[in-house]
Amino acid sequence: MFLQQLINGITLGSTYALIALGYTMVYGIIQLINFAHGEVYMVGAFTGLIFVNMFGANIALAILGAMICCMLLGVLIERIAYRPLQGSSRLSALISAIGVSIFLSTLVVLIRGPQTTSYPQMFKIVLYQVGPAKISNLQILIMIISAILMIALHLIVQKTKVGKAMRACAQDQDAARLMGISVEKIISLTFALGSALAAAGGVLVGIYFNAVFPTMGMMAGMKAFSAAVLGGIGSIPGAVLGGLFLGIAEVFGVAYLSSSYRDAIAFSILILVLLIKPTGLLGKPIQKKV
């Protein structure tokens, strides 16, 4: 049972991690909790479904299509709801993000109704026996795709020129501007990348749990945000670690304590971790400036 629960936890955790990455990237650069991120994830899941149903796309094409659509959506959200608010208080941007989130989820309900739909079965599910536990090819696929996307993101941020510009903006926007970096473009790009990851997460989670619905962004967004903070918000490896940690904590909470307290256990662990390490697992201690 332990091994089976561990596999369950890692699969759940990798879905959290995928969404958490988007939160952490945007936060790292403009210190904004992007509350609309969960809704982008939801839109991603639906666009993936449209690609599959209308164009008979396979899983890779569906993910790619959803990623591109959500990139555009992310840039659009940034233009409309965040850019005009640059320089004003962070909380105003937060409320604007909540506005976007309410708008998007209502829009999807209006377009297609509130009911849950499923992805058509895209390939045969094969179960592999690993010791006493079972793991499906879908679970393996999710872990692999999550890992690929995370590594790709890591490489973009650490090894490319754009990534360097992003890191510069995260450290000091004014200094970055003086170095000739177009901060606006970098912020747009960050939104695009974060939204693309959310879309990929949406499609994968949609296929794995076989459920896509308009309010799915809310809870997933909240959990992913918690995961990002748990790992140390702003840190990319932290988001991955935080996601996995939260997923495993939740599953083990159900397994060894009680399923009725599932979320309570997960959040208690979160609070405990923060009390011991106030800036998250991999967050850098904040130097208070006088």
Partner: peptide, 9 residues
């Protein structure tokens, strides 16, 4: 959407 832990139990 995730019921894996309960099902295992």
């Amino acid at each position: 959407t995730d019921f894996s832990a309960q099902v295992t139990k």
